[in-house]
Structures are given as C-alpha cells and as structure tokens.
C-alpha cells in the first residue's frame, strides 16, 4: 500500500534521506525509529507530497504521489505530532470540514459515530476545539481517518506528549485500524509503543534506513539494546 522506491531527498547539497526502499502492506504497522533529524519526518512528508523528492518515488496504492497528488491522498490519512484543527469550530465541524475536503458526504449522526469510534466523548463533539486537550485532538485526527476510510495512515510522532492512558487508547485505535486492513507508517521515539503496536520497525540514522526487524521476534529490552547499538557511532 505504501511504497518507497529509491526515494531520496537532499537540501542544497545536504542529504536528508538517502535512497530508501520500503514497503508497508495492508494490515501492517511499520514503525520508523531514530534520533531527531534521522529522516523520519522527511519520509512522511515525501509520502504526503509536501516536499518533492530529489530522486526515486513514493507511491500510495501503486500511484506515484508526485504524478497523482490528489488521487493518492484519497487513500491517505495524516496524523502529525499535533493535530491542528480550527480552534473556533467544534470537533464535529472540524471533522465535517476535513471529510468534505476528502469528498465524503456524511450525515451528522454518522460523523458523531466516527468521533465516538475514535474514542471522543459524546459531549465533547460539540465543544470548540480551542478547549480540547492534545489527546482529544488526536482522536479527531483518527476520526478523520476512519471517516475517509483511509487505506494508509502516516503518523508523525503521534503519541509524544500524550499521557500513558491516552497513549494506550491511541495504540488500541491503531491496532483496530490495521486490523481493518490499513497500512500504517508511524515515526516515533517511543520504543515501547513501537513494540506494542508495530508489526515491523525500522531504525533510521543520518538519512539511512539501517535495519528493519519484525517486532514479534524481539522483546522490549532487546529492542532497546539494538536501538542503542545503532545509535552508537
């Protein structure tokens, strides 16, 4: 579903991402681990076509995102570290707006259902987003993904700054979405979450994807050890 083929990006001579080959199949959760500036966010921005690749190709559902910027986004959902919403609109209105951008037509009840599915309390749907906590905004982000029936999710450190309970709820939602057949690419610093929710994880360093592991084969302690080993120069 998500595929990077010799995908690279450089800015004025400095290479942010060395040619990257990556495939995330439906139902899979791929966690990108690595220090700040390792190229995780660059990878996600390339999939979103927010930045243009220097070479290679990023494809969503078999479509090159540069050639099919809009079609590829029909399949995508994006949840950044901070899901920024229009603070003067309610959660429900934000959801309605973003799903309508995606071309969806939903009744108010369906929309409320999506928010509930994403774990937002019923009463909160009609509150203005300005009063939302980070976790609640994250849930609206998930609801957008649910509403547009995203086949691929791009998550950029979605759980950093969430309290453990909210973080746990978030992981449950991801599991549910991947269980429904979504391909998920998540950049994260949270080794624990990576092990819990991920089916595979890749370690990035200086723009290289240096190793990938199936998380089922590793224990928590082992994952941390491997990660730290890679971080040593």
């Amino acid at each position: 579903m998500l595929e990077a083929n010799q995908l690279s990006k450089s800015y004025n001579g400095t290479t942010a991402l060395h040619p990257l080959n990556l495939k995330v199949e439906p139902g899979e959760v791929f966690c990108l681990l690595g220090a700040n500036g390792a190229g995780k966010t660059t990878t996600i921005n390339l999939f979103l076509n927010f930045i243009a690749p220097s070479s290679g190709m990023a494809a969503v559902g078999g479509m090159d995102v540069v050639k099919h910027p809009l079609e590829s986004k029909r399949l995508l959902a994006y949840i950044p570290e901070q899901v920024m919403l229009y603070r003067n609109l309610t959660g429900l209105e934000n959801l309605d707006y973003f799903t309508s951008l995606a071309g969806g037509k939903h009744t108010q009840n369906e929309l409320r259902g999506f928010l509930e599915e994403a774990g937002l309390a019923r009463a909160d749907a009609d509150k203005r987003v300005g009063a939302y906590s980070k976790g609640m905004r994250q849930k609206v982000g998930i609801a957008i993904a649910i509403a547009k029936k995203a086949r691929a999710l791009l998550l950029d450190e979605p759980t950093s700054g969430l309290d453990p309970k909210a973080s746990n709820e978030f992981s449950q939602l991801l599991k549910k979405l991947s269980g429904d057949g979504a391909a998920i690419l998540m950049a994260t610093h949270d080794l624990f979450r990576a092990k819990e929710t991920g089916s595979r994880c890749g370690i990035m360093k200086h723009g290289h994807l240096v190793a990938t592991y199936a998380t089922a084969d590793l224990g928590h302690a082992e994952l941390e050890r491997i990660y730290l080993e890679h971080m040593h120069d």
């Binding site: 979103l48 910027p69 809009l70 986004k73 994006y78 901070q82 920024m84 973003f98 547009k148 791009l154």
Partner: peptide, 18 residues
C-alpha cells in the same frame, strides 16, 4: 502557522482550490 494547512492538504484537495 496554525498547522491546519498540513491536515487540510493531506486530504485530496489542491492548494489552488482551497
């Protein structure tokens, strides 16, 4: 600046149309 642009443009809508 508010960050909503990234979320809006992760939907299948062009900046021009927005």
């Amino acid at each position: 600046e508010a960050g909503t642009l990234a979320l809006a443009l992760s939907q299948p809508v062009g900046l021009g149309r927005l």
